[in-house]
Every structure is written in C-alpha cells, then in structure tokens.
Design a protein around this nucleic acid. Structure first.
Lengths: 139, 139
DNA sequence: TTATAGTTAGGGATGGGCTAACTAATTATT
DNA sequence: AATAATTAGTTAGCCCATCCCTAACTATAA
C-alpha cells in the first residue's frame, strides 16, 4: 500500500517533469525569456475573449486604462499581440494574439497535450482504454 | 484515437486542477498570501541543504551577502525560517525552515501526494497495480 | 454638446538586487 | 603573546524593473 503510493508518486513526478520540459521548450521556442507571470495572464485573458477592446480588458483585469495601454505596448514590442481598429468606430481597437502570443498563452495546455501524445505513443489501444477507465473513477 | 486523446486531456486536466486546489489550500493554511516565487525558491534551497549558512546561500543563489541578509530578514518576519549560531564559530549562523517554511517549500510535493491519496482511495488494489504497470511504460 | 476610447505625462509602491564600509570573530604571522 | 589578515554577516545607501495610479489630453461618435 505504502509501496504503491511511493511508486505512484515517482511516476507522477516523472509525468510532471515531462510536462515542465515541454513547456520550457515551448517558451524557449518563443525566444522570450523575460516574460512575467502577469504578462502571461494578460495574454490568457486576451486569448479567451474574442475581439477584446482596451476598455474591456481594463474592466476584466480591474486595472485602469493607462495601465492597459502601457501593458499592451509592452506585449506589442514583444511581438505577442496585434491590434486592429474597428471599421465602424474609429475610437475602438480590437486586440488579437499573434502566433507567438497564442503559443505563450496556451503553453501549459499544449505541454499537457504533448505529454499525452507521448503517453499514447507508449501504449497500445487496450492499455489506453484501461487507463481511461481507471482514472475516470478518481473523484 | 483522437477521442482517446481528448478523453485523457480532460482527465489529466482534472487531476491538475485537483493538485492546484490542494496547493492553494496548503498556502492558505500557512496564512501567507503575498509570498513571491523568488521567496519560495529561497525556501526550497534552504530546505534542500542542511545547516546552510548565509554565505553558502549567497553562493548557491548567486547573490551578494547583503541581498541574502535582507531576504532572510523578510522570511524571518514571515515566520518561515529560524537561525541558530554555530557553537564553534561565533561568526556563523545556520538557517533552518520553520514548520510553516517547510510547508511552503514542499507545498507542490505535498499537493501531489494528496492527489495520489485520493486516487488510491478511489481505486481497488488491483486497479492501482494496473495503473502503475501502464504508466510505467510511458517514456 | 456631451460622452466614450484610448493616450500621454508624471508619479509612486514594491521587489529584489548591488557596492562600500563596517563589526565581530577567527586564523595566521611576526 | 601581540598584531595582522581573513571571514561571516550587517548596515547604509543606492539602483532598476514591474506594475500600478490620477489628471489631463485627443479623436471620434452620439
């Protein structure tokens, strides 16, 4: 029982390490080494809201509009976002992630997917089904 | 196949969410809400080196000694570390984690253990063995 | 004319780092 | 044994980046 637990801890430690390696290589592929947690969070908010405006982003993140302007300029200089002005209202700009911004915003999720791909490659179809059945029971 | 992958992603997403919840409750149990990533890293270094000195900590983290002095004072005020002067050499202080400091340094690891305990509780002995056998194959 | 979207200017708190100069303790040298 | 040199940690004073703000502005729309 204790032995099983230790065994599982080692196995999951290894899976977590694999996932970390994947996200690290995603970040280094983006050639952005000095991005901050806050900046990544802004990218995630932009990623999860289509055609978001400065004002809306300020609202969601509970910051002032000048704060957003500054942050967007920074993320723009890093090549993570682009903006397009609204054709119907010249005051409004919509924010979009660039390919690089999207990679960063989704790095963790993509790292998980890569680990699962490796997992699928290492197992046969029956084993995968079995794994799914077992892990589905965990509550 | 694609279906299996999506299924596994959902399952692992859920496990990761569970682990995050565990580490969040560990941190809130420590009643430290404004600790930083850097501070946690210092705690981890202290945790992994027995009877570490200021100078050694400066060496390992590649910082100056004044930086270490300041950081240690901060972590001390947070109740995360204690120090004891060396009985044979009055210049030297050894650093130790308090119970709280240790909880923070090991939060991630303990969160993983809690998830695995839940996993073990949800499965019977045979299923656990099967799970171990399957996941051991992942490389 | 008034309201709204975003910008600019200027400021400030906080975190986390530094060097130089110091004190106290230990070790080496004369 | 006395003095000099070294070492551990501290203090003072500084710097810089991040991330936030308010007030005042411009341009556009209602």
């Amino acid at each position: 029982m204790t032995d099983q637990k230790e065994h599982l801890v080692l196995i999951f430690d290894n899976l977590i390490r694999m996932k970390n390696e994947c996200s690290c290589s995603i970040f280094s592929a983006c050639e952005i080494s000095d991005i901050t947690v806050k900046q990544i969070n802004y990218l995630k908010v932009i990623d999860s809201h289509d055609e978001i405006t400065f004002s809306r982003l300020a609202e969601i993140t509970r910051n002032s509009k000048p704060t957003i302007t500054e942050m967007i300029h920074k993320l723009d200089r890093m090549g993570c976002i682009s903006r397009k002005s609204c054709p119907h209202d010249g005051r409004i700009s919509y924010l979009y992630l660039t390919e690089r911004g999207e990679m960063i915003a989704r790095a963790e999720q993509n790292a998980l997917q890569q680990v699962i791909e490796r997992l699928i490659d290492s197992l046969d179809c029956h084993e995968i089904d079995l794994l799914i059945e077992i892990l589905k029971k965990v509550r």
